[in-house]
Simulated assay, not measured.
Amino acid sequence: MAQMYFYKFNINAEIYNVYKDETLQEKILNQVFEKLDSDMTYEYGFEEDEQDKMIEYKFCDLLKSSEDLAITGRLVKIYDGEVESYDRKNDTVTQVYEEDRAASATFYFDILNEEIAFITRQGFGYLQFGTYFVKLLEQKFPEGSFALILEKNIGELKSKLYAMNRVLKVTCAMIPPNANEAEFTTLLGASVDEFKETGATKYVQSMEIPAKGKNSIKVKTRFFNRLLYALGKGYADMVVEGRNKNNEKITLNSDEDAPYKLPIPESEKDSISAFREHGKCNLSILLKDKALIQMQDNGEVNGDKEE
Rank of each mutant, 00 (worst) to 15 (best):
A2L: 04
K8L: 08
E14H: 12
Y19I: 02
D21E: 02
L24F: 08
Q25E: 14
K27D: 09
F33K: 12
T41M: 03
Y42N: 02
F46G: 12
F46A: 11
F46M: 01
Q51V: 09
M54L: 10
I55G: 08
K58C: 00
F59T: 09
D68T: 02
V76E: 04
T94W: 06
Y108G: 00
N113C: 10
E114K: 15
E115I: 15
F133K: 10
F133P: 09
V134K: 12
L137Y: 08
F146M: 06
I154C: 06
I154A: 07
S159L: 11
L161I: 06
R166V: 07
R166P: 00
L168C: 04
V170L: 01
T171N: 15
T171M: 14
A173E: 14
M174P: 03
L187V: 15
L188C: 04
L188S: 03
L188D: 02
A190R: 15
V192Q: 15
G199C: 02
S206A: 13
I209T: 05
A211Q: 02
N215K: 13
I217Q: 07
T221M: 05
R226A: 12
Y229V: 07
G232C: 09
D255G: 06
P263F: 07
G279W: 00
L283Y: 04
I285G: 01
A291G: 04
A291M: 10
I293N: 10
M295R: 15
D297C: 00
E300F: 05
